Simulated assay, not measured.
Amino acid sequence: MRIYAHRGASKDAPENTLKAFCLAFSQHADGIEFDVYQHENGIIVFHDRTLRRRANAEGYLLETPWSTLQTLDIGDGERIPTLNETLGVVPTNKWCNIEIKHLVDVKRWVNDVKAALSQSQIAIEHVLVSSFNHHWLKAITDLWPEVKIGALSASYELDCTASAKALNAYSVNIALDAVDKTFVQTVLSEGFNVYVYTVDEPKDMEMLAQWGVTGIFTNVPELAKRVMAKRASAKDAVSDKS
């Protein structure tokens, strides 16, 4: 089961910062998940529409000049990173899930992401683009069919693969509160991967692994890797006895 660090190792470091991303990889996460906004000065990594929670400042992210955003402390002296800076700390053979929070110019967004990837060590095969706005995802895949798409949802739809089919998606990314075993079996049987967010409890990690999900998004990647290692050891022990 693939372990993505949700906004980096966000239990141990400020979310969506280079510190959180580097820590996640030092904890052996398979990949990182992070949120992006298309600011007038480029793609920046941040979760909220406003600055209050993360920067203890007033105002909206997109209404604030980049020169000002660069000065804000979002925890432990960390600054808001750009997409280029974020991709620059992802090691070879690791994954990243780019969740889009704001997008205006799809063509410019695709070109900017491609340019950032060309300067990083990441293979396009290890990039997953997701959003709750499936119109954005459709526009992206029309321009960039090579990129993997994650159909993000917080709902267990009556037809749980309809969006994935419409987007020719790689995966369905579903909320933990909405998923069950039947959902996982249905999505996998129809040829899509299943990722579940946000999974921080060992019991839930074990359950999802038993169901065969492709991966999880977690704030505690170190714990998740330990749980999966313990599970693998237990299976090996049973196999040796048989």
Rank of each mutant, 00 (worst) to 15 (best):
S118L: 11
W136I: 02
V129N: 03
A154P: 04
H126S: 10
V127C: 10
S120H: 12
S130W: 02
I140A: 09
L152R: 02
S130D: 04
T141P: 05
L137V: 00
D142T: 14
L152M: 09
I140Q: 07
L128R: 06
S155L: 14
D142E: 15
W144F: 04
V147K: 00
S118H: 11
E146L: 09
A151T: 01
S153W: 06
L137G: 00
A154I: 09
V147S: 00
E125F: 05
I122G: 05
E146P: 01
A123V: 04
Q119W: 06
S131T: 02
E146S: 12
E125V: 02
S131L: 07
H126G: 06
V147G: 00
W136N: 09
S153N: 07
T141K: 15
I140K: 03
A123L: 12
S130K: 02
Q121D: 15
V129Y: 02
A154C: 08
H126L: 07
N133F: 07
E146K: 11
N133Q: 11
A139S: 15
K148W: 05
W136K: 06
S120F: 12
E125A: 11
S120I: 12
H126M: 07
W144C: 05
S131M: 07
K148F: 05
W136E: 03
L128I: 14
W144L: 04
F132K: 13
S155R: 13
T141S: 14
H135C: 13
S155N: 11
L152Y: 02
D142N: 14
I124D: 08
A154S: 10
I140T: 08
L143Q: 15
S153Y: 06
